[in-house]
Design a protein around this nucleic acid. Sequence first.
RNA 1: GUGGAUAUAGUUCAGUUGGUUAGAGCGCCAGAUUGUGGCUCUGGAGGUCGUGGGUUCGAGUCCCACUAUCCACCCCA
Length: 420
Amino acid sequence: MMLTQAPKGTKDVLPKESYKWHYIEGEIRKICFEFGYHEMRTPTFEHTELILRGVGETTDIVQKEMYTFNDKAGRSITLKPEGTAPAVRAFIEHGLHFDTQPTKLYYITPVFRYENVQAGRLREHHQFGVELFGSPSPSADAEVISLAMTFLKRLGLDNLKVNINNIGCQECRKNYNEALKNYLKDNYDKLCDVCKDRFERNTLRILDCKEKTCQAIVKDAPVITDYVCENCKNHFEGLKHELDILNIPYEVDPHIVRGLDYYTQTVFEIITSSIKENLTICGGGRYNNLIKEIGGPDMPAVGFGLGIERLILTLEARGIEIPKPKGVLLYVATIGDKAKDEASKIVFDLRNKGIPCERDLMNKSLKAQMKYANKIGAKYVIVLGDEEIDSNKARLKEMETGKEEDIVLSDLYKILLQRV
RNA sequence: GUGGAUAUAGUUCAGUUGGUUAGAGCGCCAGAUUGUGGCUCUGGAGGUCGUGGGUUCGAGUCCCACUAUCCACCCCA
């Protein structure tokens, strides 16, 4: 029955593992605060037109991976397939470009792509993204790259490699496209079908083709860095200089072009090289025309996106432990109805004072209550029966050591405060 | 969109050439210890064998379709 099955390509995060997400999200918020980025939340769906314009009609996303539908008023709506276009839309809509620049934003958002499912590739996945609007400087590129690198390192990832490339501005891209087309023309028949199609529509992407025959052809193709204009060249040199200063190791890979149309000048990927394979864990670049393209001012921007599911998988594959949260501080075990009422009051009062504590809600035996306390990771247990209530005294048991001590019940809060 | 593998308890998996009542580990519940957890031992609950059709005296097992999962390709995060 479909009733009890999540749709293809979606995943539930169960209580057992939600702590992983809390941890990652916490680290994201921490580093973004330190780097001076502020959160922006945009809607789950946008007008289809925004995605078409923003992401680009020739991309795979737009051509075959969009979740698009008409709402009741007949508007074409699309679940956002990435975070940049919506962020740019919101930036323009709310006039953030009239503020002092730069504008530095981040987001954690679900994104949707209708594609075949594989490990770390879902139809709904979650992305951490960073966008820096307003600065044309290579220092901005370096800053977002350094943020991503620092973030991944802090989580414990090693063997990180940054691949960068310069794909120029619209002007130099035109020249390069021509040169590339000229070169490929002679080998057109040998290209794979997909690339034949790309030849007219999106020549650059042929560089990215994984077909062996295409790769062989591409190997001797003209290199884009030879065709970029003075300005773009300087920008790229500036970026390399900044990365050197920050001690971030990088490699220039003339074949990365990224899947999105809006990139200009810098594109980059962060690869984690494991024993088995290299995995792109983060990708981004500069998009100097997108804001204008969507109807805003002529303003440069740079950013990246990072898939959180894939990140968690990578951490686990490396055996990197995500810190587990602590259990409750106190479990109040009870014997009898009188004790239940008393425990109810005590627990409610302690919780109000900020002490995380639990008590029995299942009418379990004392033994079962102890088991439960152990299971939920209670640091202390107190057993309440008629005796304790009448004498206002009880034994506070430390679960890890098994040691017990006599305490006065009314001092419980004071004692716990000292133990936190 | 293409190709391959798989689908049995909450979970990970056994299940012989098709043959009575479908099993195990872990988890859950209880007892051993009637007011004290972890370790151990004992017992218990839990399954329309993914869904629908077909072959057969008889299907978890064979055939078909659908759905989902995993892997690879395409592409990307």
